[in-house]
Computed example of a mutant assay.
Amino acid sequence: MLHNGRVINMQIRTRKHVLYAIAGYIGVSAAIYFIFRKFGAPFVAHQPLVEYASAMERFWDFQAGSLWGFVLIGLIVLITRGYRNRQLQSPGRGTSKKELSLLLGYMAFAQLLGLVLGKLFGFHAISFHLAGSIYGNHEHVKLTEMLVWSCYNFIVYAVLPVVYLMLKKGYTLSQLNIISNKNVLRDTMVIIAILIIESIVQLGGLSDALLHLSPRQILLGGFAAFSFNLFGTAIPTAVFLFAILYPRFKAVTNSAIVPIVFGGLAYTALHFFDSWMVFRSPGAFLTSLSALFLQYFMPGVVKSVLTDRTGNPWVHMWAYHVIVPHVIIDTPHFVDALILKNE
Rank of each mutant, 00 (worst) to 15 (best):
G136Y: 00
F109Q: 08
A158K: 02
L117E: 00
A53N: 10
A158Q: 01
H124I: 03
C151I: 13
N85S: 13
W60C: 00
K98L: 10
L88A: 08
G69T: 07
L120E: 02
P48I: 10
Y135C: 05
A131Q: 12
C151D: 04
H138I: 05
H138C: 03
A55T: 07
I76E: 10
V50L: 13
L72R: 09
N137R: 15
V50S: 12
K97F: 14
Y83L: 12
M56K: 01
L67Q: 03
L100N: 09
T144G: 07
E57P: 01
R81W: 10
C151V: 14
L102H: 01
A45G: 15
K98T: 08
S133W: 09
Q89G: 00
V50F: 10
L143D: 07
R93F: 04
Y157G: 00
F62M: 14
E145I: 02
S133M: 14
V71Q: 11
S90E: 01
C151Y: 06
F128E: 02
L78V: 11
K98W: 08
V50R: 13
L115A: 09
Y52W: 07
S96I: 01
V77M: 11
E51K: 15
P91K: 01
K38E: 11
G40M: 00
S127Y: 01
G82T: 02
I155N: 07
L67P: 01
L143Q: 12
F39Y: 11
H124G: 05
G74A: 09
I126T: 08
Y157I: 00
R84L: 02
A158D: 00
T80Q: 03
F123E: 04
A108L: 14
Y152P: 07
F39A: 10
G114I: 06
Q63D: 02
F59Y: 15
G82Y: 08
A53F: 03
W149T: 02
K142R: 11
